[in-house]
Amino acid sequence: MSARTRVKICCISSLAEAEMAIAAGADALGMVAASPPGSGAADDATIRAITAEVPPPVATFLLSSHLTGLAMADHLRHCGAGTIQIVDHIDPSEIAILAVAMPAVRRVQVIHVEGPSALELIPRYEPYVHAFLLDSGKPGGTMRELGGTGRTHDWEVSCAFVQATRRPVFLAGGLTEANVGEAIARVRPFGVDLCSGVRTDGRLDPVKLEAFMAAVRAA
């Protein structure tokens, strides 16, 4: 019997959305701080109000745009999340600083899959993080994207990444009820992560959410 695929629902922007996601069976909630691009951003006070109410064992992820370990640690103290999702390809030495400052916080490095070169980032980050999250952003260039694109990427690269690392891997990027079964079959991630795929007009949609959760359970 294969292991159960975990589900992280991102862009949670209110306690009502958090409660809806938890009731549907989400394993983790992602809260986007106001500065990273993408939908579903929330201010720090709202994020703290959410994290204060989330019951165990549901994990809380803070998506922060800070690029230094000390700034990320300070942001985490304000927001109360148990996991930091590092949305940019930052210097690993800053993650090491964060690990010393807040050793109990779990660290997840986002890898933006633009091609096979994504695999080259495994040895760069693996010693410093607890998990990876593969997304479809474009951190380089003039129009930087750090997630929330609603696009899929090359799942063959993602599959190779999962096989090459000893860390758990979340798969994100354009996932919906219609394609998550194929994504799980092809990539075999530890978990899946999505925002827009369960939303209508920017709001968490209970019908789409339940359909997505059912598709994951059937995969």
Results as ranks from 00 to 15, higher is better:
residue 1 M to G: 07
residue 1 M to C: 04
residue 3 A to M: 14
residue 4 R to E: 08
residue 5 T to D: 02
residue 5 T to W: 01
residue 8 K to T: 08
residue 8 K to Y: 06
residue 11 C to Y: 00
residue 13 S to A: 12
residue 14 S to I: 04
residue 14 S to A: 07
residue 15 L to R: 10
residue 16 A to R: 12
residue 17 E to W: 11
residue 18 A to W: 07
residue 22 I to E: 04
residue 25 G to Y: 03
residue 28 A to Y: 08
residue 29 L to T: 09
residue 31 M to E: 09
residue 32 V to I: 15
residue 32 V to K: 04
residue 33 A to H: 08
residue 33 A to T: 11
residue 37 P to A: 12
residue 37 P to Y: 05
residue 38 G to N: 03
residue 39 S to K: 03
residue 39 S to T: 10
residue 41 A to Q: 03
residue 41 A to M: 00
residue 43 D to S: 03
residue 44 D to G: 04
residue 44 D to E: 13
residue 45 A to E: 14
residue 46 T to W: 00
residue 46 T to N: 00
residue 46 T to G: 05
residue 49 A to D: 12
residue 54 V to F: 01
residue 56 P to M: 01
residue 59 A to H: 12
residue 60 T to M: 07
residue 62 L to N: 02
residue 62 L to H: 07
residue 63 L to S: 02
residue 64 S to Y: 08
residue 65 S to W: 01
residue 66 H to M: 06
residue 66 H to I: 00
residue 68 T to L: 01
residue 69 G to Y: 10
residue 71 A to P: 01
residue 72 M to W: 03
residue 72 M to K: 08
residue 73 A to K: 01
residue 75 H to C: 06
residue 77 R to V: 10
residue 77 R to A: 14
residue 78 H to G: 06
residue 79 C to R: 03
residue 80 G to A: 09
residue 81 A to G: 07
residue 88 D to A: 14
residue 89 H to D: 14
residue 90 I to P: 06
residue 91 D to C: 11
residue 91 D to W: 06
residue 92 P to H: 11
residue 97 I to N: 07
residue 98 L to R: 06
residue 100 V to G: 09
residue 107 R to C: 03
residue 109 Q to I: 05
residue 113 V to W: 12
residue 116 P to F: 10
residue 116 P to S: 07
residue 116 P to E: 10
residue 118 A to M: 12
residue 120 E to P: 00
residue 120 E to V: 06
residue 122 I to G: 10
residue 123 P to Q: 09
residue 127 P to M: 09
residue 130 H to C: 02
residue 133 L to Y: 09
residue 135 D to N: 09
residue 137 G to S: 07
residue 144 R to N: 02
residue 145 E to P: 00
residue 148 G to M: 05
residue 149 T to N: 05
residue 149 T to M: 07
residue 152 T to G: 15
residue 152 T to M: 13
residue 152 T to K: 14
residue 153 H to Y: 10
residue 154 D to H: 08
residue 157 V to R: 07
residue 160 A to N: 12
residue 162 V to A: 13
residue 164 A to K: 14
residue 164 A to W: 07
residue 165 T to I: 05
residue 166 R to N: 12
residue 166 R to L: 04
residue 167 R to T: 01
residue 168 P to I: 02
residue 169 V to T: 01
residue 169 V to E: 02
residue 173 G to A: 14
residue 175 L to F: 12
residue 177 E to D: 12
residue 179 N to P: 08
residue 182 E to T: 15
residue 182 E to V: 13
residue 184 I to V: 15
residue 185 A to K: 13
residue 186 R to Y: 00
residue 187 V to I: 10
residue 189 P to R: 03
residue 189 P to Y: 09
residue 190 F to G: 00
residue 191 G to I: 02
residue 193 D to F: 04
residue 193 D to N: 11
residue 196 S to C: 08
residue 197 G to V: 10
residue 197 G to C: 11
residue 203 R to E: 11
residue 204 L to M: 13
residue 205 D to A: 13
residue 205 D to G: 08
residue 205 D to K: 12
residue 205 D to L: 08
residue 206 P to M: 13
residue 208 K to P: 04
residue 208 K to Q: 15
residue 208 K to W: 06
residue 208 K to G: 04
residue 211 A to P: 13
residue 212 F to Y: 14
residue 214 A to C: 04
residue 215 A to F: 02
residue 215 A to P: 00
residue 216 V to T: 05
residue 216 V to I: 11
residue 218 A to S: 15
